[in-house]
Computed example of a mutant assay.
Amino acid sequence: MTRTTLKLKPAAKTVRKAPTPRPPPSAARAPAATARTGASRPASPPRAGAPRPSAARPAGTHTPNARPARSGEGPVPRPRTPPKPLPDTGERLSKKVMQLKDCSRKEAEQYIEGGWVQVNGVVVEEPQHRVDRETITLDPNASLMELTPVTLLLNKPAGHTDGLEELTPLNAGSPARTGAPGRKVPPANARALLTPANHWEGDPTDTRVLKRHFHHLEADVELETGATGLVVFTQDWRTTRKLTEDMSTMEHEFLVEVKGEVQPDALKPIGYALKDERLDLPQVKVSVNSTTPESSRLRFAIKGSHPGLIAFLCEKAGLQILGMKRIRLGRVALSDLPVGQWRYLAGWEKF
């Protein structure tokens, strides 16, 4: 048997090399970028719309996150903080009147709302009005006895509601909102006509027009939107109770214009309908006031407020209505009040 002898070489000594220092991060990335792109390869131009590299910002600066401007757009404006309202200066007018008149705060407010106080020669009716060095004068004839509720009589135009609903921007006559084609514009509210500009110059009363006269007005008597005539607005609870509790017995007088010439015999169908117990109609008196070949005027006296009743009776007689006007409510007449204007209810007038 032959033996094989293996000769082992001595182990080489391990020599530890000193660590090679690493370049800074910025310097280490630069050769890598050069190696990827190549020194001889030209840099490609930036694509259209791509954001340009921004210059290095100093440490500590901060740019708010904002939407980058698109091509063709200008810089995005930053939202501005609204200015703070200036604080109110001076004192309330009611406090000044308290010192001037030596009265309570409630009485001072009543003097101001009554139109007895002037600031620099101008009547001011708001107790919260701020004054500082202005000249404040009180009318020597100032009295709190005139702070009584008022009642306004309006000659409502055709196409306006009777004012039983509250005043809103749409039914006050402002343009309707657009968006839906063919949308109908709501009718205007008769309350929108109760302004100092629409006060009748021929008002038989000597009542001064004040801002408080247009507050807390209540309407209780209905009138068709297509009709014109007398409408009542009141601040007096006694007038409101009269117009509601006695409405069924209060007489309403209308002048109705119909098409064509009308003879007394043409009103017989209306009489038959009023006598029909199945219809249960209120008391109505109808007569021919005037007639011409083109049109005729009928007079209706109805107990109570019944919108639509006149149209129903005219349809029974085959009459076409051209116009309708309420000229009297109880014992209060419309008289010569122009359409669209109002006046005060006089002290001697009773419903």
Results as ranks from 00 to 15, higher is better:
Thr2Val: 10
Pro19Phe: 05
Pro23Arg: 04
Pro24Val: 00
Arg29Asp: 01
Pro31Gly: 02
Gly38Tyr: 08
Pro42Leu: 11
Ala43Asn: 04
Ser44Met: 05
Gly49Ile: 05
Ala56Glu: 12
Thr63Asp: 13
Pro64Asp: 08
Asn65Pro: 04
Arg78Cys: 03
Leu86Val: 13
Glu91Val: 13
Leu93Pro: 14
Ser94His: 14
Met98Leu: 05
Arg105Glu: 03
Glu107Met: 05
Glu109Ser: 08
Glu109Thr: 01
Glu109Asp: 15
Gly114His: 09
Gly115Thr: 07
Gln128Glu: 14
His129Pro: 08
Arg133Asn: 15
Thr135Ala: 13
Ile136Trp: 12
Asp139Trp: 10
Asp139Met: 04
Asn141Gly: 15
Glu146Asn: 13
Pro149Trp: 04
Leu154Asn: 06
Asn155Gln: 07
Pro157Val: 03
Ala158Lys: 09
Gly159Thr: 04
His160Thr: 00
Leu167Tyr: 05
Asn171Thr: 15
Arg177Phe: 02
Arg191Ala: 07
Arg191Tyr: 03
Ala192Arg: 11
Gly202Thr: 04
Asp203Asn: 07
His213Thr: 11
Phe214Ala: 10
Leu217Pro: 10
Glu224Thr: 09
Gly229Val: 06
Val232Glu: 01
Val232Ser: 08
Gln235Leu: 10
Glu251Trp: 11
Glu253Trp: 10
Glu261Trp: 12
Asp280Lys: 11
Leu281Asn: 02
Lys285Ala: 12
Ser287Asp: 15
Thr292Asn: 12
Pro293Gly: 08
Phe300Cys: 06
Gly308Cys: 00
Lys325His: 09
Val339Asp: 06
Gly340Met: 02
Leu345Trp: 09
Glu349Ile: 07
